[in-house]
Design a protein around this nucleic acid. Sequence first.
DNA 1: TTATTTATATCGTATCATAAGATATATTCT
DNA 2: AGAATATATCTTATGATACGATATAAATAA
Lengths: 141, 141
Amino acid sequence: MSKEIAQLNELWTDIYYRLRYNHSEKITHQAIRILQVIQKESEVGIKEIARAIQVSHNTASEHVKRLLEKGYIVKTRSAADERKVILQLTAEGNDILHRHSSLDEEKLRHLLFEKMTKEERQAVLDAFALLKERADDVYYR
Amino acid sequence: MSKEIAQLNELWTDIYYRLRYNHSEKITHQAIRILQVIQKESEVGIKEIARAIQVSHNTASEHVKRLLEKGYIVKTRSAADERKVILQLTAEGNDILHRHSSLDEEKLRHLLFEKMTKEERQAVLDAFALLKERADDVYYR
DNA sequence: TTATTTATATCGTATCATAAGATATATTCT
DNA sequence: AGAATATATCTTATGATACGATATAAATAA
């Protein structure tokens, strides 16, 4: 493993450890994973959830049922095929996922606007955008 | 919330979603959190674990016991106070934590060395280092 | 020295999270 | 019409998670 890869990963995990939200509401591990899939992919149904988290369709359906009950997602039927459901996050769903996978906004605000110059801020954003753009190439190849 | 903060968070979660390891071994959610604490903090004992993951000391002790059994951590007694234990990750512990919190090395190798110029690579690393340095300020303030 | 506090370990009990086989209904495809 | 597909529900079972009660040992206070 090259020095750069190890370095980047250490920076990555360090940054997350320092900047993540501290006091999170209780939500299950698989629920977070499912909400992520729904947010990051398009046209997500039970089959896609099952495949993404590597469980049977019945397990996936049960998980989805619970998320519906909690109000984190909503379900519609696909116009193209009425057997298929299309799942989407609600505002609550987006909110709780945010808190379990994003960087704490207050910490970010402080960091970006009180600890960085405008140029530094832009450099960070540019670097992240570049990394994400290249990551898309890897993900979708 | 400012545009930059939202943008950074979307980039952050997108990058992780695309670059994380795909097929992870089964390890529990709290186990990962504990391994992270042990890796990122110093002089970690039962009390520190309990506080970090917000459980009672007995629960923390049980969790630690299981991680010891799996060989993910080792335990020593503090020379300064023999009641206290000091926990450290084993190579296996580091390895499994890596797979549940870091970016996939193969994806990173491909991305950094086949999709980026040397200048771009350096810009990304510099930006991450800067963000981490400022994150330290926020975390330790 | 004794009493109290601190740090961890173990046991028993309980609830929640997670999973999948069996079965069912509805829709789409052959 | 029959087969395949997509999801939903029920039943059963194991693992994950948590903490009160209790215990031992070490450190600190009186």
